[in-house]
Nucleic acid binder design. Structure first.
Lengths: 240, 240
DNA sequence: GCCGACTAACCGCGCGGTTAGTAAACCGAC
DNA sequence: GTCGGTTTACTAACCGCGCGGTTAGTCGGC
């Protein structure tokens, strides 16, 4: 019923990660100081060390979470898609929309070089696996006729580029909702790759009606005083 | 005939800029130290201050050069293109190929936030102007029927994303030549946007035959001891 | 002898990371 | 209940390092 200590710790940890990811996206890893992240969360730098052992592990956690999302989307795409193109587009759009939700957009690969060798090797391994899986979807699509013949490697580079770029310009407060953006993006990709491209695309992303979406999106975490929260945790003697 | 002192200074300056851009692209602005750039050029940090007043001005010069290239490409595209789509694709591909040649790929917008306020405002103004021009080309293409109806803003975001991403993965030593890459990229963009999309694309970028290109590309500046070069500048009493 | 190009040595600042200490919540004994 | 000891969450103050930037001085072509 009530959250246990461990729950609260996990929630705060996620909040720290989210704030860090936000800064890393906007200013870059090296340009962001821990003091900055801490201040923005209403605590001091030393407090962050209760949740992460050092700055680099924050970045590593970003990548880890992003890759988890990537493979989950891939799984979903594989299951729900009817053909290669369908699976590819589902994977991509699931990935983008989840990252926007969970991490305020993630750097994805932007600053991979800043990771420590061990973490970096792991990331590169996973990322390559993900990219190979995407390329395999393109090949599958070419074979089943849903995707126009092309160089899968380049096609995936183009798509990843457009996706990762989103983190640089997308603002939740802007004219487009995440759902609208995701939909419009996937329609462009679909058109670029489909063997039977659509004859028209949305003229204005902001006007798109999205099927199952809660429209104006939660107005960000307005009063996020998640850290510095104290209070009794009644009922925590047994796991909830 | 022989270079004057001022010429040599200019050449060396450009070499410094190129090396800096290379590092900024690969590791990011804040992760790159001046010592690192200098060492890689075979000089000490203090030597760089003969060519640029401080680190930030190196970044500013990168952006300035990139924007010069951008507007030059735009001009060329406007002149040589037959319709909106044509002009857009010419602009983009000219931009990409020139940046690869001149700056070892440029960050373009990647770390705009690191600029000092004055330089940044200038960059943002120019970049917005460039983006507006690109969007105008999309609109023009929609009106003249060469481009599929779409949201010009999103279309340009996608294209810029794919383009800027190139700097992150392209290696001159790789399997693809800059010319092949540029051509293949523009074909993908063309297909994504054209009102009459191609039914096929290159299956392997590395196999592309490019019209007017010197193939294997100069093997980078292998023995670049441009700085630390000393020697007589015979005949420099009058401008060459 | 002058002047431009460059080096070696240095400076102060702000960063990531650490330490000692405080306040409050928790938990078992009675 | 409530009282003591333990644990968790956090702060204030501090440390050393490496950075961007500066200074004084050397070398060599003109």
């Amino acid at each position: 019923m009530f959250p246990t200590k461990a729950d609260v710790h996990g929630i705060k940890r996620q909040e720290v990660l989210r704030e860090a990811a936000s800064f890393f996206n906007f200013k870059g890893y090296h340009a962001t100081s821990l003091t900055e992240i801490a201040t923005s969360l209403g605590v001091t730098k030393a407090a962050l060390y209760h949740y992460f052992p050092n700055k680099n592990s924050l970045l590593a956690a970003c990548f880890e979470q992003a890759m988890d999302v990537a493979f989950a989307s891939l799984e979903r795409g594989r299951k729900e898609g009817k053909n290669g193109r369908d699976r590819l587009v589902l994977t991509i759009s699931g990935y983008v929309s989840q990252l926007i939700d969970e991490l305020n957009c993630c750097v994805v690969l932007m600053e991979e070089q800043a990771l420590e060798p061990g973490d970096r090797a792991k990331l590169v391994r996973q990322r390559d696996k993900f990219e190979r899986a995407l390329r395999a979807l393109v090949k599958e699509g070419i074979e089943d006729g849903s995707v126009v013949p092309c160089d899968p490697k380049l096609a995936i580079f183009v798509i990843l580029g457009a996706m990762n770029w989103v983190a640089k310009w997308f603002k939740p407060s802007g004219a487009w909702t995440p759902a609208q953006l995701t939909l419009a993006l996937s329609q462009i990709f679909e058109r670029a790759l489909s063997s039977t491209p659509a004859t028209a695309l949305p003229r204005d992303v902001g006007e798109l009606q999205v099927a199952g979406s809660r429209e104006p999106v939660k107005p960000a975490s307005a009063g996020k005083r998640v850290l510095t929260f104290t209070g009794p945790l009644r009922g925590n003697q047994n796991k909830k």
